[in-house]
Design a protein around this nucleic acid. Structure first.
Lengths: 178, 178
DNA sequence: TACGGGAACTTGTCAGTGCCTAGTTTGTGC
DNA sequence: GCACAAACTAGGCACTGACAAGTTCCCGTA
């Protein structure tokens, strides 16, 4: 059921999803999805929670494999967004799900921890506030790049490899002037 | 009619909009909106085109007033997103409108020109490719910051002034290492 | 083995929606 | 005065999410 939902969202966007269509695809009655998830927001909340956990896993793994290289964590963020586009879109659309759901909050906290750990390891000699805003800058950059890439808003000529393009662009995150 | 649509989107998101509800608010029959805009996508396309023009105006003005300071153009981008949240959300949701609409393309081209002009004036001694990716980095950063701010995904403690926060964060866009 | 309970699911219904077609009003230029 | 077009209305169709009530089936317990 969740898999079918993710397929639909990935190909037609979150607005195109219908509980009844999912039920048809799964070969069950039209009320079965509501039975499991409560309502439509419940279904999307489940997807958001799954996405947060998945993102946290990916960021954690990238942090470990790269030895704490923040650039690689950012690239992993973009890769997650492109590969799990449906999850990504739902996660950052709080009006479609329940952002105060415990499972969603838990995943978001875990993912956020990796992002901020990467930022704090990046410049050890800087103030706490600098570290914080540097992390926000990096997050903003990769998040913006991912959403622009997904929505096809970026200009042509970047190639078809989002990771390589993200790596190139993210290198422009320089040291802070204070 | 467009104003009513923007109010609804701003307070409940693009998914909550209904042609019939808009008609009720405007005191006309349920088919009147469809008559003017063709269909729902037509209405949202009109909003997207209006938003692109508005964004282009804002960026152009910020570029002029700041003497070409790219940071200020980025801050204007964030300000536009926060102040015209409904327009901004529709503009970057191509599955909800018709991104190939001539009016939309015209506005997008005009807005893009300001963004890239700001980037190219930033470092005159750099290669064309560096200028291009620097512009993309800046755009990604302010776009990401704006969307995260709008969706309430940023951590607390940033205050309630998105422009000041954006200015602080965007300063982390340093020089490119190549 | 009989049974009670609960989870999974079905059936039916309701208000609401987008879109379509046909008809009606209203304003304008000739 | 009138043709014409734009603006709008009225009604219907297939669809949606949500809700209420009933059904099936499995599993632990006596």
């Amino acid at each position: 059921m969740l898999d079918a939902a993710i397929d639909v969202i990935a190909e037609a966007g979150p607005a195109a999803i219908s509980l009844r269509d999912l039920a048809r695809r799964a070969g069950v009655s039209h009320a079965a999805p509501a039975h499991h998830f409560g309502d439509k927001a419940g279904l999307l909340t489940a997807i958001a929670a799954e996405g947060q956990e998945l993102l946290a896993d990916r960021l954690h793994e990238a942090h470990r494999r790269s030895g704490g290289d923040f650039l690689e964590v950012g690239v992993a963020y973009v890769r997650f967004a492109v590969e799990h586009r449906a999850h990504f879109e739902i996660m950052y659309r709080p009006e479609l799900h329940r952002p105060d759901d415990p499972a969603v909050i838990a995943g978001r906290t875990r993912a956020g921890a990796v992002l901020y750990r990467g930022a704090s390891e990046r410049g050890p000699g800087r103030s706490a506030d600098e570290v914080r805003t540097a992390g926000l800058a990096a997050w903003s950059l990769v998040h913006g790049f991912a959403t622009l890439w997904i929505h096809g808003a970026l200009p042509e000529g970047l190639g078809d490899d989002p990771e390589a393009a993200a790596r190139t662009v993210a290198r422009h995150l320089g040291v802070s002037p204070g």
